[in-house]
Design a protein around this nucleic acid. Structure first.
Lengths: 192, 192
DNA sequence: GTTAAACAAGGTCATTTGACCATCATTCTA
DNA sequence: TAGAATGATGGTCAAATGACCTTGTTTAAC
């Protein structure tokens, strides 16, 4: 589990071996079963999370019980709720495993130490934030602009691998459309 | 124009007077007329932009001619297209003035110098990025979750002052609903 | 291996939404 | 000040969408 992470780090940033060792030594490994939560809405996000393998989802549940998915996080990516983590306030989203997953956790204080001690790691962290911002923007446009067909097509294009790993209802919850609409789209596409 | 900006800086960050002077000396003031563009989709975003007064919008126009608004930027806020600015690649959005506006511009190289020379300014910049991220998240949920009524209600709650400054069609373009739907909502609300 | 749960998909129907068009009011411009 | 442009709203109608229910299948859990 740690070797996968170390390999990821080595390919992503120009880090001395010693630094890589240190970062991974301080990680807390954890195994998640399907549907197991890392934290629930109302709790505070206390860790940075790296997904070694598996798939997580970040979502919000309305009082009416509807689920809206903000983000999927597959293997070799990071996740957390930024606002809750930064300010240590209760989160309004939950993060849970879609598939059985292996993850690594760092406590905020630990992670901050690493950031100050290892400049190249700080740089990597900043790059990840940037990518996240670009990505959110793009997603906002997609949600705003499209007909359901276009949203679905965008999803397939951007995340071709996810289709087979996710129940359709989660894709619908991600796209902001009803599952009925989604199956209708798929139905008409099959006929072509 | 510069004094307003200097006042803003003084209240937002713990900056020595000398630093404030320096930052504002390097700003390029510019006056925008209604509907005047700062840059258009396809061009590169070369500046950080501070709105002294007025109101800008960041938007995207589809090939079908539909406009989708990502963001409104009122007085005493910053704006730019992050991805285009960071990577100096063509932007897929445009930024234009909704009202006659006074703005300040800094070239990327100038701004970077300021960031490295003035740590407290760098800190402010990071705070602004964070807030932006929180804000995007929140907006994503709103767009995903709501009925048009809820989206409109959220808009009124979050930006009470904007309603009177914006044409309704822009509010519709921001919420991702048709103007017909928006007027219908307003109509039924009037009757209650 | 059996039972239970989760899931995809289809049917039906009421409601919502958007496209298109016309009208009236307001604002800007020459 | 007249004329043009912009903007808000309403009418009408067709299409899209979601809620609810049922069925058949796949997947997970014990």
């Amino acid at each position: 589990m740690l070797t996968e992470f170390e390999h990821y780090l080595a390919t992503q940033a120009n880090l001395p071996n010693e630094a890589i060792r240190k970062i991974s030594t301080l990680a807390m490994p954890r195994i998640l079963r399907r549907n197991e939560f890392i934290f629930r809405a109302g709790e505070i996000c206390r860790h940075k999370i790296f997904i070694v393998n598996g798939l997580l989802r970040t979502f919000n549940t309305t009082t009416a019980g509807n689920e809206h998915i903000l983000q999927f996080s597959p293997e070799l990516t990071w996740t957390l709720d930024v606002e809750s983590y930064d300010r240590q306030i209760p989160s309004y989203v939950s993060i849970a495993a879609v598939e059985p997953s292996n993850i690594l956790l760092w406590h905020k204080s630990t992670f901050n130490t690493l950031l100050t001690e290892i400049p190249a790691f700080k740089k990597l962290a900043e790059q990840l934030i940037s990518r996240n911002i670009y990505h959110s923007r793009q997603r906002m446009l997609t949600i705003l602009s499209g007909t359901p067909e276009e949203k679905y097509a965008d999803f397939i294009r951007n995340y071709p691998g996810f289709l087979s790993r996710l129940p359709l209802r989660m894709i619908a919850a991600y796209l902001g459309i009803s599952i009925k609409t989604l199956t209708r789209i798929r139905h008409t596409q099959l006929q072509r």
